[in-house]
Design a protein around this nucleic acid. Structure first.
Lengths: 233, 233
DNA sequence: TCCCCAAGTGTAAAAAATACACTAAGTTTG
DNA sequence: CAAACTTAGTGTATTTTTTACACTTGGGGA
């Protein structure tokens, strides 16, 4: 047992799949950590065991904050993973060693999903993470445990939500152009969209309103800036 | 501790929301069980703690079988529930008593969803269930723990799947009429559908094929019987 | 033979999705 | 200051999908 102030639940963890958008590419928040008994390192999703007296949602937010310094993100639960041959998902080495006494044990993990603007969050490694960093989704390394699987399921879910226009605007700055939204959709969905058709659809949904301001500092025709219609959400 | 042959994981349970279709109404599989320290009874979803060395999916199938005698059902995970003020979801009284020593503890439950033909499954109470029965969804009693909440989320998910035609046909007999499918959809979605439009849509999806057989024994014009197009699924 | 009952069928209108190409308004460069 | 560059912004025609709607058909039962 550790000297953690709270009673740790040794059977349940949360893992956070945090997608970051930088107006160009889709990135994923990873941690680098030392492997048990070796000085090799591995990459993983940020995640850890939950403690009693916190909800799963709270646990996800706490763990993400503790490991990566990122807080205030809207994390949504999307699936629990619990295969018995799941490699134990415990990252704290003390825990891991004490836990070895029961090789049968495995950890059920509840996976959470978020999508954030990368600029808003500067990850800072702490806890058992040696390093926390944004990794381009296109050049993803092999991850520890079953984290590649978890990530793929998260991506499926994210795309499904985008198709149904259930998410996405929270990634935009306060004022944004229709081109920004379109780029966001194109990157998440991984395909190009027709500009005119896209605009028709977005405007019909009335989730955004034009302001009377224009873009400045761009080397082309400045676009009209829009804002979110919070009432409509 | 009990003398259970397997090592029980005291922190994680599965709960099964089994919807039953009887060609008329939507029912839900419930258990009646004695409450701790009282001789009052309560109603609940079938569910129990998982044991090590089984996957979550396996646990759901095992637990459902042990408590209700129902097996061979396609159970799909839909969400984990884990509020700390969730009333502990342990139904075995021995366990519950030993567990009382740690009032902080709560059980995370992973909820599963299934939809079956009621006729195919005759529930038989065993384990800690006093009684297992099908209850019409329209006249649902108050359930133990947070099971009403779990059930409502399951129903939302079920409807969502039906709207996207991702499920449903498994409830039909080997040969069925288009009217049967329509009734199924109407009951799940809770609203009437236009017969001609419904047929157009179902037939266009090519998930069913007409046979050259007709209904018999009905007191009206016999309908053409269709069969599932397994290749297309 | 008549009645009852669900089966079965088509069409028109509206709405949504798709394909497609030019002009506009700024900035930079020469 | 003119030309070049870059993304913004716009409309229409076509196809596909969705919706609304009412009568005839073929069995069984009385």
């Amino acid at each position: 047992m550790t000297d953690s102030p709270k009673k740790i639940n040794p059977n349940v963890s949360v893992d956070c799949v945090v997608f970051g958008f930088d107006n160009e590419k889709l990135n994923i928040l990873l941690i680098e950590q030392k492997m048990a008994n070796k000085d090799k390192v591995q990459f993983a999703l940020p995640g850890d065991l939950i403690v009693d007296a916190e909800s799963l949602d709270d646990a996800a937010n706490r763990v993400l904050g503790e490991i990566t310094g990122i807080s205030g993100v809207f994390l949504r639960q999307f699936k629990a993973f619990g295969d018995p041959n799941r490699v134990s998902d415990i990252k704290d080495l003390d825990w891991l060693n004490s836990y070895r006494s029961n090789p049968q044990a495995r950890v059920i993990t509840v996976a959470y999903l978020a999508l954030v603007k990368m600029d808003d969050f500067q990850p800072e490694a702490s806890s058992f993470a040696e390093r926390v960093f944004w990794q381009e989704l296109e050049s993803l390394p092999s991850l520890a445990f079953d984290h590649n699987k978890i990530l793929n399921e998260a991506l499926d879910r994210l795309r499904d939500d985008f198709v149904n226009h259930r998410t996405g605007f929270e990634l935009l700055p306060e004022l944004f152009t229709l081109g920004h939204i379109q780029k966001l959709y194109e990157i998440i969905l991984g395909k190009e969209l027709d500009k005119r058709n896209f605009r028709k659809k977005i405007l019909k949904e009335k989730l955004v309103t034009a302001t009377n301001q224009k873009q400045t500092g761009v080397l082309h025709k400045p676009a009209i800036l829009y804002k979110l219609n919070h009432a409509a959400i």
